[in-house]
Amino acid sequence: MSGEDWVFWVSGSFAVLGALGLVFSRKAVHSALWVAFTMINLAVLYIANAAPFLGMVQIIVYTGAVMMLFLFVLMVVGVDSSDSLIETLRGQRIPAIGLGLGLAVLLVVGVGNGLVNSGTVGLVEANSIDGGNVEGIARLIFTDYLIAFEATSALLITAALGAMVLAHRERWLPRATQQELSKARFLSGSHPGNLPTPGVYARHNAVDTPALLPDGSTSEESIPRPLQARGDIRAVDHHEVNEIKEVDSQ
């Protein structure tokens, strides 16, 4: 087997494995990861077939951006949410299988037709026309396929604008600035910062030990409220406190 054969059989099987993993995973995040895995293996196949630009863009765009966005959404939706297996669309299986088979036939016929009838020369020749893979793609995109390329970009911009319009929320009031928020926080009269931590300046480092104020009295605020409600506040041994004071003053 040549090097290309090795790459094909290893990466190709991994890509199929990833696709199967996508279908059979129970967790949505696992499915997303399998897709990312498949994408990377497809990219390896592109690179092995003398299309390094396509391979890199495949990783940057699909693995890096698209799947990352998917993961982002899945993680926001919930850590443990796995989809329920009840079908919400009734009777969708038969049309879905039909359409899937139709797509498979179209792909096989299309690719097969391209392979048999158009006299393939291979990417090495294709790359050598313009002096390189990147230059070749650039020439095709900006000459023969300019309209298709621009139409795609217009479509994507429309989609992005649509998403922005859908997500837009009219503000009634100007957004509160950091200064206003800080003023509101102090005006409300509640404790503006962190409450004192328990056990500070005390002999026992535990949440039920109240913090001691500089004058030796205890701070109620330093005890978590559930403990206060239960009355679980450890009494401060004032004898010990006085001992410490003595040591400090020496």
Binding site: A36, I40, A43, M56, G64, M68, L71, M75, N133, V134
Partner: peptide
């Protein structure tokens, strides 16, 4: 190779998966 800067970018984008997945 002809697109090696893009390669660094691509590898960096895979590397972020480590952090994101660790978080999840």
């Amino acid at each position: 190779f002809p697109v090696s800067v893009l390669y660094v970018l691509a590898i960096a984008s895979i590397g972020i998966y480590g952090i994101v997945l660790a978080g999840w």
